[in-house]
Simulated scan of single mutants.
Amino acid sequence: MEKNALVFQTDFGMEDGAVSAMYGVAYGVSPDLKIYDLTHGIEPYNTWEASYRLIQTVSYWPEGTVFVSVVDPGVGSTRRSIVVRTKTGQYVVTPDNGTLTFVKRNLGIEAARIIDESTNRRSGSEESYTFHGRDVYAFTGAKLASGDITFEQVGEEMDPESVLELPTIPARETEDGGVEGTIDVLDVRFGSLWTNIPVELFKKLGISFGERVEIMISNDTRTLYRNTMVYGHSFADVYVGEPLLYMNSLNCMAVAINQGSFARAYNIGTGNSWHIAIRRDSRG
């Protein structure tokens, strides 16, 4: 039987043996599995970031790919351990703690099941409550990817609509003729700001490439940045060190500094309390 790819995401980092232990459990289920890493650099406990990295990645993998996402601040609690099948045919094994927010809203969940830990749990781990990433999620993900179990054998069926979502604030048009949204996540290595403003909403402003826009970024009531910048195709449309507005790989608007970190330069964070407003440059 052909195996499906198994892809791991965690907030564990690579400084100790946690990720390697998950690999070992998976290979113990099936030595010929192909295992890949999405990332292990999620900020500790940050289920919002975990959710964003999944939607950034999942749909580009073949149907049948199994993702295991372990960002689990509630490990050992009553939160559910689940597996979902997306509407594009991939599977995600994860705690039901908001990690699936963007997959559910943007990609869609076709079906969901609660992991039956009486059968889908590493033998000998029954009294361990702090490493479900190894004992439950990597183990179940490996069994599913290898074909050792079917999706139906994961456990009891649940309503996909009951999968937990984190609160979000929709992007919208503003009364002054602009658009506003939130800064959802950073393009971590380069410090670009990725917003939730879809390009189709931005296009309603009628701004062409090469024109300037006004950008205002605030954290609740405090404004941290207010200036104009070019709307460009890519970073090369401005000089090194200059800012620009562009469309990112998820078809949403983003702000960057060419060969610099916008987030570091202006101490910008992410989440629902970080707001960004865009409008045409009033100076013409």
Rank of each mutant, 00 (worst) to 15 (best):
residue 87 K to E: 14
residue 40 H to Y: 11
residue 45 Y to A: 04
residue 76 G to Q: 09
residue 41 G to M: 11
residue 106 N to G: 06
residue 81 S to M: 06
residue 97 N to E: 11
residue 97 N to I: 12
residue 92 V to F: 05
residue 110 E to A: 14
residue 112 A to Y: 05
residue 62 P to V: 04
residue 54 L to E: 03
residue 105 R to A: 11
residue 89 G to P: 01
residue 150 T to L: 06
residue 125 S to P: 02
residue 50 A to Y: 10
residue 93 V to N: 02
residue 63 E to Y: 08
residue 121 R to N: 05
residue 124 G to C: 10
residue 114 I to R: 11
residue 106 N to Q: 13
residue 49 E to W: 02
residue 115 I to W: 00
residue 49 E to V: 12
residue 70 V to E: 02
residue 56 Q to N: 15
residue 65 T to D: 09
residue 86 T to E: 04
residue 98 G to K: 02
residue 42 I to T: 01
residue 78 T to S: 13
residue 111 A to Q: 11
residue 62 P to G: 09
residue 112 A to Q: 05
residue 116 D to S: 10
residue 118 S to F: 07
residue 137 Y to D: 03
residue 113 R to M: 05
residue 56 Q to S: 15
residue 107 L to V: 15
residue 49 E to I: 12
residue 136 V to R: 02
residue 53 R to A: 14
residue 93 V to I: 09
residue 120 N to Q: 13
residue 125 S to H: 09
residue 45 Y to V: 03
residue 68 V to F: 00
residue 149 I to Q: 09
residue 99 T to Q: 13
residue 54 L to R: 03
residue 114 I to V: 10
residue 99 T to W: 04
residue 95 P to D: 10
residue 149 I to W: 04
residue 56 Q to M: 15
residue 67 F to S: 04
residue 140 T to C: 13
residue 127 E to C: 03
residue 113 R to G: 01
residue 40 H to Q: 07
residue 142 A to Y: 05
residue 70 V to N: 01
residue 77 S to I: 07
residue 91 Y to M: 10
residue 98 G to H: 08
residue 93 V to W: 01
residue 82 I to D: 02
residue 122 R to G: 01
residue 138 A to T: 03
residue 111 A to C: 07
residue 79 R to M: 11
residue 108 G to D: 08
residue 65 T to W: 04
residue 82 I to Y: 02
residue 51 S to A: 15
residue 45 Y to L: 08
residue 127 E to Q: 14
residue 58 V to K: 00
residue 69 S to Y: 00
residue 62 P to W: 08
residue 106 N to R: 15
residue 82 I to Q: 01
residue 132 H to T: 09
residue 102 F to P: 00
residue 121 R to W: 05
residue 134 R to Q: 07
residue 132 H to M: 12
residue 109 I to F: 07
residue 75 V to A: 10
residue 65 T to H: 05
residue 100 L to T: 05
residue 132 H to D: 15
residue 86 T to D: 05
residue 45 Y to S: 01
residue 58 V to D: 04
residue 90 Q to K: 15
residue 73 P to Q: 13
residue 69 S to H: 00
residue 45 Y to M: 04
residue 140 T to K: 03
residue 84 V to N: 04
residue 143 K to L: 10
residue 109 I to T: 04
residue 74 G to F: 09
residue 106 N to H: 07
residue 150 T to R: 12
residue 120 N to I: 07
residue 48 W to M: 14
residue 67 F to Y: 06
residue 81 S to C: 14
residue 86 T to Y: 03
residue 147 G to I: 08
residue 124 G to W: 11
residue 63 E to P: 01
residue 148 D to G: 01
residue 132 H to K: 14
residue 145 A to D: 07
residue 96 D to N: 14
residue 114 I to W: 04
residue 98 G to Y: 07
residue 103 V to R: 00
residue 100 L to E: 05
residue 85 R to L: 12
residue 108 G to Q: 11
residue 130 T to L: 14
residue 42 I to Y: 02
residue 135 D to T: 06
residue 119 T to W: 12
residue 134 R to M: 07
residue 83 V to N: 02
residue 46 N to K: 06
residue 124 G to V: 13
residue 54 L to G: 04
residue 44 P to V: 14
residue 146 S to C: 06
residue 42 I to S: 00
residue 51 S to L: 07
residue 121 R to K: 14
residue 93 V to Q: 03
